[in-house]
Design a protein around this nucleic acid. Structure first.
Lengths: 103, 103
DNA sequence: TTAGCATTTCGATATCTATCTATCCATCAG
DNA sequence: CTGATGGATAGATAGATATCGAAATGCTAA
């Protein structure tokens, strides 16, 4: 999975907020939660949780699934994995893969 | 290398700004630059560059070295590597390492 | 349809921060 | 010492955003 520069920016910002990271981490360990569930874990208002979930969703690091009255969110590991890979690439933390020359 | 939660927060914030990431990336590929060098590469004022370098420095992702009149900055890969590892750990992107039981 | 809950949206506010100009401090060359 | 240059600091400002309470929307069940 390849990230566009714009997506990369958005993910970086999404991960910059501690509250949002906490929510994401909670989702990572519990698997799947709805907005109210998340709200129960943290000391912020429910609209704030909704806002953060939206940001995470827009960044593509969580997936939103509407099931009737509820809205379930779960982590999209592929995106996060791609983000980490891209971060490592940009910061020169990994050996650069050179594509074989076509001839 | 183990990162304190506070350091992790600071690094996340440091990496959230595109301009700062660009500076860091430039440092990563060139190895070592002073403030003026960095300034020459980007379209922001020298104080702004100084500010960003300070942020990066406070976050521990770059090292500052004063050499006479000049101030050289270079990437601290250990910190960045530790950051990425911690990020992966928190987001559940890696298998958890269990320490062997002492007996 | 109506009551009630889940979630989002709205509008406001306070804080944070990226950026600038102006200025100051330190070091080097003469 | 003096002027020039690298770099940091001070102070101001504009824009972003995390947060809230209130209201709107959407869905389910009775």
């Amino acid at each position: 999975m390849k990230l566009a520069s714009e997506e990369f920016d958005r993910i970086s910002k999404a991960l910059a907020d501690p509250q949002r990271r906490a929510i994401l981490q909670k989702l990572a360990v519990t698997g799947k939660l709805n907005c109210s569930d998340v709200h129960a874990f943290f000391d912020v208002s429910q609209p704030t949780v909704s806002h953060h979930l939206k940001e995470l969703s827009m960044a593509g690091v969580v997936q939103r699934e509407k099931q009737g009255q509820f809205c379930y969110y779960h982590v999209k590991s592929e995106t996060l994995t791609a983000y980490v890979a891209e971060l490592q690439r940009r910061l020169g933390l990994v050996a650069v893969q050179v594509a074989p020359r076509a001839r």
